[in-house]
């Protein structure tokens, strides 16, 4: 019990952000029309590529060669997620645009 309370106290800001972000995430997309499901999924997919920041931090402080290699891999994969995700979403949405004209 003490552990749990201590854990909460130590991370209360993070817990706050988590809870508010959950509500925000639900609120932000709850009225999306079905035609945008695919692009939205793809866009959200690109946003979680934010994990690349963690990869950069790990690689930036890597001390051994092994950690370097894994870090390098993590940064490459994270970038794939970010760049590929945003580019492909843009490609989909570009088509929606064109026919409006």
């Amino acid at each position: 019990m003490g552990n749990i309370l201590g854990f909460f106290l130590l991370h209360r800001e993070a817990v706050f952000i988590v809870i508010l972000s959950i509500f925000l995430g639900i609120e932000v997309i709850s009225h999306v029309p079905a035609i945008l499901h695919t692009p939205l999924m793809s866009g959200a997919n690109a946003i979680h590529g934010v994990v690349i920041i963690g990869a950069i931090i790990v690689m930036g402080h890597a001390e051994t060669t092994g950690a370097m290699i894994l870090g390098f891999l993590a940064v490459v994969l994270g970038t794939l997620n970010v760049v590929g995700g945003f580019v492909v979403t843009d490609r989909m949405l570009e088509m929606f645009k064109r026919k409006k004209q």
């Binding site: 988590v18 972000s21 959950i22 925000l24 995430g25 932000v28 939205l40 997919n45 979680h48």
Partner: peptide, 8 residues
């Protein structure tokens, strides 16, 4: 970013 995508 992560939680937003998680909940959305």
């Amino acid at each position: 970013g992560g939680i937003l995508v998680g909940s959305a």
